[in-house]
Amino acid sequence: MKRAGPADTGCPVLRSLKHVGEGWSFLILRDALAGATRFDEFQRNLDIAPNILTTRLKSLVESGLLERRRYSERPPRDEYHLTERGRDFKPVLHALLAWGNRHLAPEGESVVIVNRETGEQAEPVMVDRRSGRPLSDPVFTNAAGPAANERIRRRYPSMNQFPQHREAD
């Protein structure tokens, strides 16, 4: 029997891709983060077939990234609003935008992130909240977390293999 995709191994990257890894889902979330809420807005912005949009919106609702709210009974019409989980996707989208501008836009940046208060262009970088260091620093690596299964523990070192920061007594 042929599998539809990779088996769930407990990997957070794989689990994330199962919810948002399809291209239309990324674009719907991009537009939702920019303020789109209605079916016709998504359809117009994305030039997407209605049946595909219906399927992707349903999937994003089931994944807890969007919630559907009825705004008209006759005819029945719904809006799609980001949930907290959906709003938390914004830095992921910004990281992908920055990576695409840096590596896949030989003609130059077509979309940039701008500070509304200053008008300055932002330079997105993911940082560790505790140290303030960029996650691209070679000091950071992946490690098996507390809930890691055997397969993940074989692939990544344990957190216990690294020096532990201890607070002063």
Rank of each mutant, 00 (worst) to 15 (best):
15 R>C: 10
16 S>G: 13
17 L>K: 02
18 K>V: 12
20 V>H: 07
20 V>P: 02
22 E>T: 06
24 W>G: 08
25 S>H: 12
26 F>R: 04
30 R>L: 11
30 R>I: 02
33 L>T: 03
34 A>G: 06
35 G>E: 12
37 T>K: 10
39 F>H: 04
39 F>C: 02
39 F>L: 10
40 D>M: 06
45 N>S: 12
46 L>A: 00
49 A>M: 11
51 N>D: 15
52 I>L: 14
56 R>Y: 05
57 L>S: 00
58 K>T: 13
58 K>A: 14
58 K>V: 05
58 K>Q: 14
59 S>E: 15
65 L>E: 03
67 E>K: 05
69 R>C: 01
70 R>S: 11
72 S>N: 05
74 R>T: 14
74 R>A: 14
78 D>R: 00
80 Y>P: 00
80 Y>T: 01
82 L>K: 01
82 L>W: 11
88 D>M: 03
89 F>N: 02
91 P>Q: 06
92 V>F: 13
94 H>S: 11
95 A>V: 01
96 L>E: 10
96 L>G: 05
97 L>T: 03
97 L>A: 08
98 A>S: 12
100 G>Q: 15
101 N>S: 06
101 N>T: 07
101 N>K: 05
102 R>T: 14
103 H>R: 08
105 A>V: 05
107 E>N: 08
108 G>C: 07
109 E>G: 00
109 E>C: 03
109 E>S: 07
110 S>Q: 15
111 V>D: 10
112 V>E: 15
115 N>L: 07
115 N>H: 09
118 T>E: 09
119 G>S: 02
119 G>I: 09
121 Q>R: 12
122 A>H: 09
122 A>F: 13
125 V>I: 13
126 M>T: 11
126 M>Q: 15
131 S>I: 04
131 S>L: 12
132 G>D: 07
133 R>P: 01
